[in-house]
Amino acid sequence: MSDTVTIRLAKENMKFSAAHFTIFSASERERLHGHNFRVEVDIDARMLGNGMCFDYGIYKDRVVALCRELNEWTILPTRSMHLRIEEDGAHVFASFDGTRIPFLRSDVLLLPIENATLEEFAAWFLARLGEDRAVLHEHRIDAIEVRVFSGPGQSAGRRARFD
């Protein structure tokens, strides 16, 4: 019998609402729009020998907190090769293909990602959940997979091993 278990965290409160646009090329992007995103996390861990692997309430709380960080923002990627971000006091300007798009600074979350996509959101969650390698080791976590949904039937996932 395997010593490893997969814990799936997919609670109703693991969600965020945000506006974004996806950049397809140097001259093509989506219009600004929003989604009610949902997040699921699979954690592969080794059993402790007492009928459990770890207190996964810790990770439920962490995912909910990360969702709150993204909730109700217009998300702009700071690492895009096609988008230039300028901050000017109360405003943020996103320059794309010769057009300067204004936003209120209070409405914008600048995220260190390449594009505002499901793939990049999943990678962001994964990086944040994997930041403390000592805790992952203590909880005997071998891998984490994060899946972000923009609606039913549409998601992207990213996975990392920590062994």
Rank of each mutant, 00 (worst) to 15 (best):
M1P: 11
S2L: 10
S2G: 09
S2I: 01
L9N: 03
K11C: 07
E12P: 05
E12A: 13
M14Y: 04
F16N: 04
S17K: 08
A18N: 03
A19Y: 00
H20T: 03
T22G: 04
I23T: 14
I23F: 01
F24P: 01
F24V: 00
S25C: 08
S25Y: 05
S25F: 07
S25M: 03
E28N: 11
R29G: 00
L32I: 14
L32E: 08
H33R: 01
H35R: 05
H35S: 01
H35W: 02
F37G: 02
R38Q: 15
V39A: 05
E40M: 08
V41K: 04
D42V: 00
D42W: 14
A45Y: 09
A45I: 03
R46P: 00
M47V: 11
L48R: 13
G49S: 02
G51E: 09
G51Q: 12
G51A: 08
G51W: 10
C53F: 11
F54R: 08
D55C: 08
D55F: 09
G57H: 11
V63P: 02
C67W: 11
R68E: 15
E69M: 14
E69S: 14
E69G: 08
E72H: 15
E72D: 15
E72Y: 15
W73L: 05
P77V: 03
P77T: 05
P77H: 10
M81T: 14
E87G: 07
E87I: 07
D88H: 10
G89K: 12
A90C: 06
A90H: 10
H91W: 12
V92E: 03
G98C: 06
G98L: 09
T99G: 00
R100W: 02
I101H: 00
I101P: 01
I101W: 01
F103E: 04
L104N: 09
R105T: 09
S106T: 12
L110G: 05
L110Q: 11
L110Y: 07
L111T: 01
L111F: 11
L111H: 03
I113Q: 04
N115I: 05
T117V: 00
T117W: 07
T117S: 15
L118E: 02
E119K: 07
F121W: 07
F121G: 00
A122P: 12
A123H: 07
F125K: 00
A127D: 15
R128F: 08
G130T: 13
D132C: 07
R133K: 14
R133S: 11
A134C: 06
H137W: 11
D142P: 00
A143D: 07
A143N: 06
I144S: 04
E145P: 01
E145Q: 15
V146Y: 11
R147K: 14
S150H: 06
G151C: 09
G153Q: 06
G153F: 09
Q154N: 13
S155R: 10
A156G: 03
A156L: 01
R159I: 09
R159F: 08
A160Y: 05
R161T: 10
R161C: 09
F162E: 02
